[in-house]
């Protein structure tokens, strides 16, 4: 599934970029993130608990930040798996200064498998959008 969109942040690209490389910030902003532990350069192990209405699922996985081009772009690769399935997301985030803040545009691919893939088709798109929205809302609240 293709994922693309734009989000606005009220602070400068340099600051936005810095925040998005900070594991403490990421762990607060990624919806459901329970632990984010550094395992290498720009590589983290993550524990996540997704809660959405009656659905819930624990995931373990990793987050990698690659191709850093501060402060204009980086690639984020997220992988997780749990009993209800697995997911993989790979996208490029591009930051540009706009109206005194930052416009973050993101574009990438998401793939899910297991039970989630088979029974959640009609919900994947709206849920992914909501989670991205929450991520940027949390990020915006960091300053």
């Amino acid at each position: 599934m293709k994922i693309a969109g734009v989000a606005q942040l009220a602070f400068a690209p340099e600051r936005a970029y810095e925040l998005m490389q900070d594991p403490a910030v990421l762990s607060r902003a990624i919806p459901g993130c329970e632990a984010l532990e550094r395992t290498g350069d720009n590589e983290y192990r993550m524990k996540m608990k997704m809660m959405l209405a009656s659905f819930s699922g624990a995931f373990e996985g990793k987050v990698r930040l690659v191709d850093p081009q501060p402060p204009t772009s980086f690639r984020m690769v997220v992988e997780g798996s749990g009993k209800i399935g697995f997911m993989k997301g790979d996208g490029v985030l591009t930051l540009t200064a706009k109206d005194g803040g930052t416009e973050v545009s993101y574009e990438g691919d998401a793939q899910i498998g297991g039970t989630m893939a088979a029974v959640g088709q009609r919900l994947i798109d709206t849920t992914a959008r909501m989670m991205i929205k929450r991520f940027f809302e949390k990020l915006a609240a960091e300053v």
Binding site: S54, F55, S56, G57, I84, T115, M116, V119, G120
Partner: peptide
């Protein structure tokens, strides 16, 4: 009608 199917699939585990 929504919760039970999700529980049966173990997508929900209250």
């Amino acid at each position: 009608m929504s919760l039970i199917p999700m529980m049966k699939l173990r997508m929900a585990a209250p």
